[in-house]
Structures are given as structure tokens and as C-alpha cells.
């Protein structure tokens, strides 16, 4: 007897439709069905955050969620953030500040950090550490990860795309 469920997902702007076993986890649907392998399987128990994706605007762990529960959702993975030719500010910042060692946690780190800076564009170091607490780096390279995120926040706030930041900079320039 098949009790497969009909699933529709929008991943990184692309629509997907398929039948899945009820027990299929979101992370495996992404990695093995859709070949979106940026989200990693680290611990399988929602501790490590390597599988972090953005689901309907919120950071979640794709390893502890059935794909059926994500039916109809919009999902962003690291593949939807920047491109090899045009890195996202956070990706560039991780490169610049050595925010990775082995790199296994990095897709989850950056996917989470993008949301963190949307939620709080001017975080303190404490707020970065708090907001990234669900992402574990087993190389323990936290210092540079935090540094990368803070530097990216500065960079993004200095860019003309943020009208508030532009206003702020103009005031400073006038002074």
C-alpha cells in the first residue's frame, strides 16, 4: 500500500512537485531528491544546525521536519544566497575573515546569519552569539564566525541599498 503524499515546494525560487513517503525528512528531500546539497546532515537531532534552511521566512532545521510538513512552503538554502560570481556580503565576509575551517557548518551558518541580519541589522557581539547559538562549529572557529557576521553587518549597513544607513552616513559625512 502506498500512502505517498503530494508535495509542492518552492526552493530558491524554483517550484518543485513530487510524491514523498510520509516519513521522508525535509533534509533528504532537498539533498537527494532535488540535489540541493548545501544544507548538510550533521547530527540528525536538531542540535548542530548544519541543516539550517529558511522556511517561510524563518530559520528552521531541516533534519527534524517531515517534507510533508513543509508542503506549500518557500524555502531558501545556501544555494539561493549569492552565487560563485556574485557572493553575498556574508559569504564574502566569511572568506575575508576566515569564518570557516573545514567548512561543513558554513552553509547552515550563513543561511542562519542572513536571517539574523534581517531580524537585527545592527547586532552586538552578544546578539550575534545568541542568534547563532543553534549552529555549532565543530572546528570551534566561533571567534572568526562572529567577526565575519559583525563585519558583514557593518558592510551591509554602509551599502546604499539600506535607506536608513544611507541617511545615517550622510549625517556623518555632513558633520
Amino acid at each position: 500500500m502506498s500512502n505517498k503524499m503530494h508535495i509542492q515546494l518552492n526552493v530558491n525560487g524554483e517550484a518543485h512537485e513530487f510524491l514523498a513517503e510520509p516519513r521522508e525528512l525535509l533534509i533528504y528531500a532537498l539533498r537527494e531528491r532535488l540535489n540541493i546539497t548545501g544544507p548538510h546532515v550533521g547530527c540528525d537531532t536538531s542540535h548542530c544546525g548544519a541543516c539550517t534552511v529558511t522556511l517561510d521566512g524563518k530559520s528552521v532545521k531541516a533534519c527534524t521536519m517531515f517534507v510533508a510538513q513543509a508542503n506549500g512552503a518557500e524555502i531558501t538554502t545556501i544555494e539561493g544566497i549569492g552565487s560563485p560570481d556574485a557572493l553575498h556580503v556574508l559569504q564574502e565576509s566569511f572568506r575575508e575573515h576566515h569564518g570557516l575551517q573545514c567548512g561543513f557548518c558554513t552553509p547552515g551558518m550563513i543561511t542562519r546569519a542572513v536571517k539574523l541580519l534581517e531580524e537585527n541589522p545592527t547586532p552586538t557581539e552578544e546578539e550575534v552569539r545568541f542568534g547563532m547559538a543553534g549552529n555549532i562549529c565543530r572546528c570551534t572557529g566561533y571567534q572568526n564566525i562572529v567577526k565575519s557576521i559583525l563585519a558583514a553587518a557593518n558592510e551591509m549597513n554602509a551599502q546604499p541599498s539600506s535607506s536608513e544607513a544611507v541617511g545615517h552616513n550622510k549625517v556623518e559625512a555632513a558633520e
Binding site: 525528512l25 540528525d44 542540535h47 527534524t64
Partner: peptide, 24 residues
Amino acid sequence: MLQGGMGIAIDRGFAALLRFECSH
């Protein structure tokens, strides 16, 4: 709400179980 699994050693069990065809 990680109380349930937090103290237990990290384990690949359940997801693997869901993924592969083992249930009984």
C-alpha cells in the same frame, strides 16, 4: 525544547530510520 534529546549522545538513528525502510 531540546530537553528530550539534548543529554543523549548525538545519533543518526531516527532520521536514517525514516529514510530507509525500517519501521517495525
